[in-house]
């Protein structure tokens, strides 16, 4: 009787773990046990973090494995793990994008047309850095400030 209850308890507990793993977490999502790594350098990665998703056409195809700073080029070097079942052409473009206006940042891959595919350890040549909101706003304000007196001048 006691054994039965303990058995039920253990089954419920394990079921809860499976629920957390599959339904709440994303264990079933992009399986990276079999992946190849590619590197890419960016001028600015913004708020990108390790384990951020790598997406193509909105589908998660991999994860950011490492973020380093390259002291020779003074640029950020991002190592991505991409699932082996998603091969990409060599001239793929990697860009750092933001989901929504304030959401988390991820890497978007836009496949090119090369016949050859990326191999493990390859470097993605064409990259597009993160859009830094502060810089955008600063640019915007600067433009407004620069154009405002001129407009006033013509008005008078």
């Amino acid at each position: 009787m006691l054994d039965l209850w303990v058995g039920v308890f253990v089954v419920i507990g394990l079921a809860a773990l499976v629920f957390l793993a599959l339904r709440v977490g994303n264990l079933a999502g992009a399986d990276l046990s079999d992946a190849y790594t590619v590197r890419a350098q960016f001028d600015n990665i913004g708020g990108l973090k390790v384990r951020a998703p790598v997406k193509s056409a909105g589908v998660v195809v991999g994860r950011v494995a490492e973020i380093n700073f390259d002291t020779r080029s003074y640029r950020a070097e991002v190592v991505m793990a991409v699932a082996t079942r998603y091969p990409f052409p060599r001239d793929t473009i990697a860009s750092i994008l933001t989901s929504g206006l304030l959401g988390e940042q991820y890497i978007g891959l836009d496949p090119g047309g090369d016949e050859e595919m990326l191999k493990s350890g390859d470097v993605v040549q064409i990259t597009q850095s993160a859009v830094v909101l502060e810089k955008l706003i600063g640019q915007f304000l600067f433009d407004r400030a620069a154009s405002a007196p001129a407009q006033e001048g013509t008005g008078n």
Partner: peptide, 19 residues
């Protein structure tokens, strides 16, 4: 509700660490 949850909760980083 579910898809955003699954996108944000990582199995190793969150679930395993919780365990």
């Amino acid at each position: 509700f579910w898809s955003q949850m699954q996108a944000a909760v990582d199995f190793r980083e969150d679930v395993v660490n919780g365990v």
